[in-house]
Every structure is written in structure tokens, then in C-alpha cells.
Write a protein that binds this DNA or RNA. Sequence first.
DNA 1: CTGTTAGCGCGTTCAT
DNA 2: ATGAACGCGCTAACAG
Lengths: 346, 346
Amino acid sequence: MSRIGIKDIAAKANVSTATVSYVLNGTRNVKQNTKERVLRVIEEMNYKPNDIAKSLKSQRTNTIGVIAEDVTVFNVPEIIDGINDFADRHDLHILLTNLRLDKRIGRKFDQVDSYRKYMANAVSDLLGKQVEGIIYVGVHPRDLTGLVDTSGKPIVYTYCYTQQDISIQYDDEQAAFEAMSYLISKGHRRIAIISGMMDSVPSRMRFNGFYKAVTQFELPFDPQLIKMGDWEAKSGYELTKELLALPEPPTAVLAMNDVMAVGVLRAASEAGVPIPQRLSVIGFDNREFSDYLTPRITTFDLPLHEMGYRAMDSLMRSIRGEEVEQKQSPACRLVERDSVAPPQQS
Amino acid sequence: MSRIGIKDIAAKANVSTATVSYVLNGTRNVKQNTKERVLRVIEEMNYKPNDIAKSLKSQRTNTIGVIAEDVTVFNVPEIIDGINDFADRHDLHILLTNLRLDKRIGRKFDQVDSYRKYMANAVSDLLGKQVEGIIYVGVHPRDLTGLVDTSGKPIVYTYCYTQQDISIQYDDEQAAFEAMSYLISKGHRRIAIISGMMDSVPSRMRFNGFYKAVTQFELPFDPQLIKMGDWEAKSGYELTKELLALPEPPTAVLAMNDVMAVGVLRAASEAGVPIPQRLSVIGFDNREFSDYLTPRITTFDLPLHEMGYRAMDSLMRSIRGEEVEQKQSPACRLVERDSVAPPQQS
DNA sequence: CTGTTAGCGCGTTCAT
DNA sequence: ATGAACGCGCTAACAG
């Protein structure tokens, strides 16, 4: 199946290749007569121009490289969807590199050396393919400064960030503050928090939001209500058992992700503590399952699609040489369900 | 800007471009001396060959087009991960097209005309980019015969199929049969099934597996135990209420997906029927949340990674002109958890 | 055996 | 409306 080229068309239509090119791209006026003839031949021969050759001359590939740390982690597909949404509207193509970090190194993000080479290879491949820019999609918000060298090509980070590039990451602190405000508006004063690990930036930022609410609303600050988890259900379970064993247990728990909220539910159920009547729970991430649990848990939805879309938008602006805001933080959105109620009068 | 080309290297190293090319590709012997000099200059100038130009000449892009019906649907990321796994090992690149069907048309897969144009565009774009083959990743197993024309380029379907191309789809019938065998081995004889909609091929195949077990193990066939759901939790909930209201309710329920199993759990809980003591439940898909529910539900894991990996393997064989099995059906795997127990003696 | 020259792949675009 | 140069790297043919 030797592909038919522009010169086959030119020959059959009795014109030069230049004319065919002009007809195809509307780059210049062509007599209606010949134009139609050319178009007809193109149709007949089912001709498709070769974008590779076109790119070589035009120096444009209309292709963006996307490096995803791991497409199987829950936040990534929605971000890619946002990227595609933008790409569709602007006739851009996506060259996807999946680092498969979760499969290859698990959660050991601190062991940078174990994946630095994957990143370098990915970038190198993408640059070789002449992508016009790169979007880096993390699986865990963290500082990646100095890890990736794109030799000058624009790059935008999302779900992570660096000190010197454009990055898009939702506002952790604001979301935690809003969660607290919501619980407080329902009448809660004794609110516990189950955080992620404190070596994680979002953990600390969400804790800041928590603490800001504590001071701003003048809640009693009780260190016993502050528990450090590890993002997994089991830690939510165990820390909730501790909380419920307190002489004066909290009336509400803010879990920093929905997975740990699962543990909260389990511990409460085992202890015979009904949710939300005696304990309110609020999660984070709006994972699909948060709607399947009993009770359905109130949580925060992440602006993942928007992050992908804005990453593309920012990248394209950057490619065009426009000024782009370095840090963008779209807001999370409260999803009210059944796991929060006013505290019981006692 | 990586404006530097092979001739810049050649100039600086005082050799011809041919020599540089030979050094880079090891296509011919080059004197150790000059080779080192060239390599040094390449290093110094941080030169990266332009794959676009290379592809134009070599007629090979090492790029595979992947068309995903919707990357945000649960089965797709794992399949893509399998595709990437293979691609990594064979130095292939992935040009990803996300049709976004779930967002654009929802579940109305029968309305082919509403998305035929998206498919055609996707294929056309990919062919223009000179991909060496295409993998089509569905979100719902169904027959796509006649929808996609790749003008001769190899294509492999996964999580769906056509009458004339290679396709990889797990074995629905076998899985349903195994689910039944498992329940029967636990002592169940009165087993209900909550199917998906019967206009769906996998529904019918799983039903075949169910029925095969009924006859093979000589179970009483009671049409009241056969319920048709619509894949959503609500239908699982309502149909289970009907089942529990039966004069002689089933001791086990086979739900054709985990989402409907959520409904089963809810209905049982409301009716005060403990699971698994008085009702065993088995799901399908091994969705993440199936491990977070109470009780954790027993289900079937789908070989998604393997499907992606094998799709790539088959595609590459096909590209090389080798004979490839047209239909491949990797097996699903039982995941034993807490929602199945022997039936209560009554 | 090592290195060079020149044409090619495929479409774009300038000068004629 | 056309011929021919061009983009960038590969490679056949040729020279030393």
C-alpha cells in the first residue's frame, strides 16, 4: 500500500504539486475550475496529506507532550480529559507518556533517583518528537523543582509544581477552611482532623486551613483532636477509634481524603456510633465510592477537569510568548451528602 | 530552542553530516578518534535528532495511535497502562485520542450517528500523523463492525470487537460460570442473578454462563430469581427488595457489576438481612470501592492490564505481517472477600 | 576501511 | 499556475 502523495494528485489533475498544496490549504487563490478538479481527484484517490512532511517544513507539529506520573491513579484521567477537551477545540494532538510511577516505585516519592531517569527519558523522547510544549501531570502534589529539564521548551505542571514554572494546583488551604466553616455552620465546635502524612505539602496546607478556621472562629484548640494518618483507610479506622475513646470525643471529623473517611465509618460503626447523628464526617476528593458508602459521605470535589484544561490554555499562551500567571489555584467544591448533621444536644 | 541540527554538529566537528549520522546510529564503522570527537560535540551542544525528519525518510514513526472512547471510565486507564507497559519495552510512542463519549453522549451507545463523526475524525488525524497502527479502547463491550475505516492500517479492538478485526475481550461467559461454581461450592442452590440490560452483549454472555451452571449443576430453574437491571446501583437496590419479598428468597445473588452490588447491600441492610449470613453477594469488575464497602464484596477482577498489553502485542505482530489470533479472551479472576458464606441451615 | 557528496522523502512557498 | 529550493536526517554511490 504505497501511500499516494501530493504528486500523484498533481499528475492526475494535470497541475503542479504547488497548486494542489494551495487548494488544500487555501493559501492562495486557485481558479474555481482547477480547484474543483483537484478536489475531485483528492476525493477519488482518498488522499490524506502526510503531517510528518508538513511538520518538517512548517516547523509546527500541533502536538503537545503529556507526561503522566501514572494514569491509573484516580486524579489523572479527569485531568487528561480536561487536556483533551482543550486539545479538541484547538486541533491539537496529545503524545502521552505514562511514567507508571505507582506501579514501578509505589508511593516512595522521596526516592527521586529511582524515577529521575524515567522523567529524563520521557522528556527527551518528547523533544525528539518535536512537541510544542509539555504538560506534567503528577499523582501527588509536591515540589518537583530541578527534576525536569526541557531545554527551553515550555512546560506546565499540574497536580504538582516547581519553583520556576507555571503550575496549576487546587487550593488545599481554602478547601480545608471551607470544610471547617461548613461544620461550624452546622453547630460543631469540637472538630477532629485526620491528616495525611505531614511530610506532604497538601497535608500541611490543609492543616493550615484547619488551623485558620480554629483561630478565626475561636474554637477551643485541643491537640488530642489532631491525628496524623497516612492516607490509607486503616489509619482512618485506627485514629477514629482513638478519637472515640477520648473522655470528650469530637462531634465531627475532617478526614483529608475519602479513603481515610472509609476507615472513620468503619470504626464508628463498630463502636456503635451512628453517623451523622453522633459523629459527622467530611472527606476529600469526591471519589466515586464516597457516594456508595452508607451513609453517603460529604466531601470536596476536585477541579480536575479544569486543571487539565487550564494547563493546556496556559501552555499554549506560553508557547505564543504571552505572559502567564505562574501559580493558579482553582477552587474545590463542597459536595453535600449524608455524613454531616448538627451535633446532638447533650 | 533546539535549533541545532546535524550540520551544526558536522561543522563543529569538522566532518560531514553523513559521518555524524553514522556515529549516531552505528550504521557504519567510524574511526574511534573521530567518533569520540563527534560524540563530544553532540554532548556539548546538547543535540537531539529530529524524529520528524528521521521519520520522513525512514517511513517509520514508532508511534501507535490509541483511540479511547473515554479515559474517565473505570476500565480504560488500566488498559492504557498495559498499552504503555508494552510500548515502554519496545520503544514505541502513543498518540492518544480521547473521544470523550461518556461526556458527550452518555450511555446512548445505540445512537451511533452521534459519535460516528468523532471516530472518523480521530482515525483520519491519526493516519495523517502516520501512526503505524491503531488500538481502539471501548468503554462497553459491543460490536463495532463497520464503524471505523482505517484504510488498511492495522487496528486492534479491546473492550469491544468487530466481525473482521483482531479483538481482545475477557471471557464473560466463563467468569459468570465460575461465579456460579463458586457459590455452588459454598452450598448455595437457590441463586438469583441481577443482570445488566439484555440488549448488551456481555449481559447475554454472562447470562449464558449462569444458565450453563444451572443446567450443569442441576439447580432448580426459577424464573423469579432472574432479574434484569440496568447496571446502576438503584436497580440493584430495587430488584433485591423484590427478591427478598419472595416467598422463598434466594440465598445468594450474583450481580453483574459491583455498582449494582452496592444496591444489593443497601436493600439487604434496610430489610435487616445480614450479608453474608443470610444472603451471599458476588459482584463483578473488582472496582476499587468493592473493598471499601461493608462487608467487602467478593467480585471478579478484569484482566485490563493484560488486555492492553496483548492488544499492543497483537497489533505489532499484525504490523509485521504475522498471523494473529482474531479473538482473544483472557480470563477474569475471582477475588474472594467477605460477602459470600455458606447458606444458613434452616 | 573511513569519510564525503548528493539525492531522497513529502509537502510548502518564493520567485518567475 | 509553476519549477525548484527548502526543512532535516538517512544512505547509496563514490573517493581516497
